[in-house]
Simulated assay, not measured.
Amino acid sequence: MVRRVEDRLFDTVNYMLLGIVLVAVLYPLIYVLSASISDPAAILRGDVWLWPKGATLKAYKTVLQNAAILHGYWNTIVYTVVGTAINLIMTIMAAYPLSRKDFYGRHAITAFVVFTMFFSGGLIPMYLLVRDLGMLNSIWALVIPGAVSVWNLVIMRTFFQVSIPYEIQESAAIDGCSNLKILLRIVLPLSTPILAVMTLFYAVGHWNAFFNALIYLNDRSKFPMQIILREILIQNDVGDMASLADDSRIEYALQVEALKYAVVIVANLPVLILYPFLQKYFIKGIMIGAIKG
């Protein structure tokens, strides 16, 4: 095909814009990685822009030797695994019935569920509810209130409706399968893309969550990694160092500066490792219903 000048110009502009977006997204990650292995004094002087200066792994050694960071890391793993499992089970249990044509009242139930996306009781009523249910200062305060995301529920319901022919479910029912067997033996094996997408969405949400832990947890031994990271970041405030002598204040600032970048990398490493393996399912899941009526 002979490409017109307008087409080549359009492609050139697109490549330029995408290149700018790539740099804007990739540079902060490269900077944090470089700063995590750089000399803290070089970071404070502003010498680190792209490549590390005075490369050292001292910050990572400090992270691996810090009991509070390791314990928070373990807590985050537990909250993410348990929370994602609950999210998937609850979302599947809600999405499958709402996708069935023979489920009476599914449109009304869907409308009530979607209503909660736009209106909620707010933070104080939610806190009172969690307190009255006896879930304060426990893992359940972090994983039960958000057990189902309405948006993810709608996406999964749409996948079941669009990508899995209803005739297959009818044939299985004629052969004697119950609704539960149809879900476990037919629907879920054909739903790998959407399950991978939901796993990624829910897991990243739990991994990065800190606000609920900040509100519902008061036992430091139960703090997730993000709360520990928050504490490290706010320790840079002058008020925390006001009582220190000048030399001690400088040394303290250097230690915190070296530590915070290393903790950011360590905290985000599992998500960065997980995403490439789920990318193909992620893209396929996002395109659900894009070319179907």
Rank of each mutant, 00 (worst) to 15 (best):
54 G>C: 04
48 V>D: 10
48 V>E: 11
49 W>N: 05
51 W>S: 05
49 W>T: 03
53 K>N: 01
64 L>I: 09
51 W>H: 05
69 I>C: 00
72 G>E: 09
45 R>V: 05
62 T>H: 06
56 T>H: 00
68 A>H: 06
65 Q>R: 09
64 L>E: 05
58 K>T: 12
66 N>V: 08
54 G>V: 07
52 P>W: 03
63 V>P: 00
52 P>C: 08
56 T>Y: 02
46 G>H: 11
57 L>S: 07
54 G>F: 03
46 G>C: 07
61 K>D: 13
62 T>Q: 14
61 K>F: 10
73 Y>M: 13
52 P>A: 08
47 D>V: 08
71 H>R: 15
53 K>S: 01
66 N>R: 06
45 R>W: 06
64 L>Y: 11
57 L>A: 11
53 K>P: 04
54 G>I: 03
68 A>M: 12
57 L>H: 03
50 L>Q: 06
66 N>C: 08
69 I>A: 04
69 I>W: 01
64 L>F: 14
72 G>C: 07
47 D>K: 12
63 V>R: 00
46 G>R: 11
54 G>W: 03
69 I>R: 00
74 W>N: 07
65 Q>M: 12
64 L>R: 08
46 G>L: 10
69 I>F: 05
53 K>G: 02
67 A>R: 15
51 W>M: 11
57 L>V: 10
61 K>R: 15
45 R>F: 06
71 H>Y: 07
61 K>Y: 10
58 K>I: 11
62 T>Y: 07
63 V>W: 00
56 T>E: 08
59 A>C: 05
45 R>K: 14
53 K>Q: 04
59 A>Q: 01
73 Y>C: 05
52 P>Y: 06
51 W>G: 00
60 Y>T: 05
51 W>F: 12
62 T>E: 14
57 L>E: 04
52 P>M: 06
60 Y>Q: 03
66 N>Q: 10
64 L>G: 03
70 L>S: 13
70 L>Q: 15
74 W>P: 01
67 A>G: 10
70 L>E: 12
72 G>L: 09
71 H>C: 10
54 G>K: 02
59 A>R: 02
63 V>I: 14
74 W>C: 09
54 G>H: 02
52 P>E: 10
48 V>R: 05
56 T>K: 00
71 H>K: 15
54 G>M: 03
48 V>A: 08
67 A>D: 15
45 R>G: 12
49 W>K: 10
74 W>V: 12
69 I>V: 13
48 V>F: 04
69 I>N: 01
70 L>K: 14
46 G>A: 10
60 Y>E: 04
52 P>D: 11
47 D>R: 12
72 G>V: 09
74 W>A: 13
72 G>N: 06
73 Y>D: 05
55 A>R: 12
59 A>T: 02
72 G>I: 09
58 K>Y: 05
74 W>F: 13
66 N>K: 06
65 Q>H: 07
55 A>Y: 02
59 A>D: 01
59 A>K: 01
62 T>V: 09
70 L>D: 11
62 T>W: 08
51 W>Q: 06
50 L>P: 03
59 A>S: 06
72 G>D: 08
